[in-house]
Design a protein around this nucleic acid. Structure first.
Length: 354
DNA sequence: AAGTCGGGGTC
DNA sequence: GACCCAGACTT
């Protein structure tokens, strides 16, 4: 174990200053930019989030710009990043800050955590990075580094684990450079003390890392294992009129992709063929006024779209029709709507020639 | 305390 | 296929 907390913090910061990546949000203490980056990076790798950060800063240079945008624009810009509640909460908080707080972000943990989409991690990150407050962050990297160095085997996704690691992190944080320290331990976890096959032999902490000394690095951190993945069967009705129009619907219930758009969806408990599909009440409801000309299956083999907790086994049914109704939109306008990646992939492939 | 919420990278 | 990612929110 590190001899002292100061030893741990000092070495971590020293390592960080020599090895950190140059990232746009590391060149500012503007709370708007720090907040935006932290929301984008929740459960998201830097490489995946970076282009979105740049797009958002360009489209919305200030919190007021973001607040003044329609939510549909924000969701469209967020398209493809996942966990869309982040985008909805981002916009709601931007409006709150711009309209009710005179455009000025709260400057302490207690007030920051009241913002929608801002939890313990993000409030600590903003408070430490922007305002030099001693608030320790605990993200996936911190869990991993601390569990190994101090050999803490409490499950990181248990309530007691969360508290224990938060307490430990708070004891270790550098009081003079809390923001730098927080970023240092996260960077170290992301780049060195990685989940699989970390290069422990070259690690600056290996004399002090209990997991390394006891050869238990590959057993830490401990996590209560997730329940099995659910399979769902999606049938999308891709209606195409003679005037090259189609139907999109907005998802408004609970569940995935709230407020995003998709083709009319018939979900079934198993894979269905055209004959079976036509007998389903929901299919008949969608198509009762269409008097469609033909229905053909686009993909012979269902497309399996994998989410973290469910697999969407998807068939796209092409339905040609003469009739059009008020809710038809030109196919060329599909790109204006925020859609899930599953839909985006199909659209870009199928409509490539339209 | 357990479930839910995306998409992509890694091994 | 399993695990993970600069977590937060709902039930």
């Amino acid at each position: 174990m590190p001899k002292t907390n100061a030893f741990f913090a000092n070495n971590l910061i020293q390592w960080y200053l020599q090895n950190k990546r140059t990232l746009p949000w590391r060149a500012t203490k503007d709370p708007y930019r720090i907040w935006l980056s932290e929301i984008i990076l929740q459960q998201t790798r830097v490489a995946q989030g970076l282009p979105y950060y740049l797009k958002f800063i360009e489209a919305y240079p200030s919190v007021k710009h973001l607040a003044d945008a329609p939510e549909s624009d924000v969701l469209k810009l967020w398209q493809g990043l996942g966990y869309y509640s982040r985008a909805r909460n981002l916009h709601a908080t931007a409006k709150m800050v711009a309209n009710d707080m005179n455009g000025i972000f709260p400057n302490n943990y207690k007030e920051l955590i009241k913002l929608k989409g801002v939890g313990d991690y993000t409030a600590s990150a903003i408070a430490s990075i922007c305002y030099d407050h001693s608030e320790a962050v605990v993200d996936g990297n911190v869990f991993r580094v601390l569990s190994r160095v101090f050999s803490v085997s409490t499950p990181i996704n248990s309530t007691v684990g969360q508290k224990e690691f938060k307490k430990l992190a708070q004891q270790l944080i550098d009081q003079k450079q809390p923001g730098t320290y927080n970023q240092a331990i996260m960077e170290f976890g992301a780049r060195y003390c990685v989940p699989q096959n970390p290069n422990c032999d070259a690690c600056i902490f290996n004399p002090h890392c209990i997991a390394f000394q006891t050869k238990t690095v590959n057993q830490l951190p401990v996590k209560i294992k997730a329940k099995p993945i659910k399979k769902r069967y999606f049938n999308y009705l891709v209606v195409i009129s003679k005037n090259e129009k189609t139907i999109l619907q907005q998802r408004l219930g609970k569940g995935i992709w709230h407020k995003l758009y998709e083709f009319p969806l018939v979900e079934t408990s198993e894979k269905v063929n055209a004959k079976k599909l036509k007998t389903l009440p929901q299919f008949q409801e969608y198509t009762q006024n269409l008097k469609f000309e033909s229905i053909t299956l686009y993909n012979d083999e269902p497309i399996t779209h994998k989410l973290s907790h469910q697999h969407l086994i998807t068939q796209f049914w092409i339905i040609e029709t003469f009739k059009e109704q008020h809710d038809f939109i030109p196919i060329s306008k599909i790109t204006k709507y925020a859609v899930p990646v599953l839909i985006e992939n199909f659209v870009s492939e199928f409509f490539a020639n339209y």
